[in-house]
Computed example of a mutant assay.
Amino acid sequence: MSFYVTRAEVSEPDVAALLARHFDLMRAQSPPESCHVLPVDDLAQPDITLLALRENGALLAIGALREFGTWGEVKSMHTAEAARGRGVARALLDVLIAEARAKGLQHLSLETGSGPEHAAARTLYARAGFVDCPPFGSYTHDPLSHFMTRAI
């Protein structure tokens, strides 16, 4: 694998396109009150580090780290459909975890869907050391949400 990860900007055309795909997919899978996907412009805020995983210049995945004091949240993880099953998401998640560690964060949490369409994501996160947890931050209990966390 010759993957490499760099900082990304929402203004990059390929990043914007993959983020739009992610946003549309998440909106299609959950009703508005249960969909916690960030609008693209929110990913350009100073408390968010947006990363892009590429291979030979081609964008394969995006993911973000949002900081809240001593803990962080994984946001907007999305792998291009053509790149799935190649270890891309795990490679990017490992970099997000390392980024959280380098920033001195103590915990990393996430919210993902609870339905079958998110089963692969939940398995990925569990294999990376995330465990189930109650809602965190401003989240509230929602049967369509699944919350996970891990120490850094």
Rank of each mutant, 00 (worst) to 15 (best):
S11M: 12
E12M: 03
D14S: 10
A17Y: 00
L18M: 08
L19A: 05
A20E: 09
F23E: 04
L25K: 05
R27L: 11
R27C: 06
Q29F: 03
P31A: 13
S34E: 02
S34M: 06
H36I: 07
L38W: 04
L38P: 12
D41V: 15
A44S: 12
Q45D: 14
I48L: 11
I48R: 03
L50E: 14
L51S: 01
L51I: 05
L53N: 10
R54A: 13
N56C: 05
N56V: 06
L60P: 13
I62A: 14
L65F: 03
R66S: 14
G69M: 02
T70N: 12
E73L: 08
K75R: 15
S76V: 04
M77E: 01
H78T: 07
A80N: 07
E81N: 08
E81Y: 10
A82D: 11
A83P: 00
R84T: 11
G85C: 04
G87Y: 05
V88N: 01
A89Q: 09
A91M: 04
V95I: 04
L96A: 01
I97K: 10
I97Y: 01
A100F: 09
R101P: 05
A102N: 08
K103C: 07
G104P: 03
H107V: 05
L108R: 01
L108D: 02
L108G: 00
L110D: 00
E111I: 04
P116S: 09
R122M: 01
T123F: 14
T123E: 15
Y125H: 02
Y125I: 00
A126M: 15
R127I: 10
G129Y: 03
F130G: 01
V131G: 13
P135C: 02
S138R: 13
Y139D: 12
H141I: 05
D142Y: 15
H146D: 07
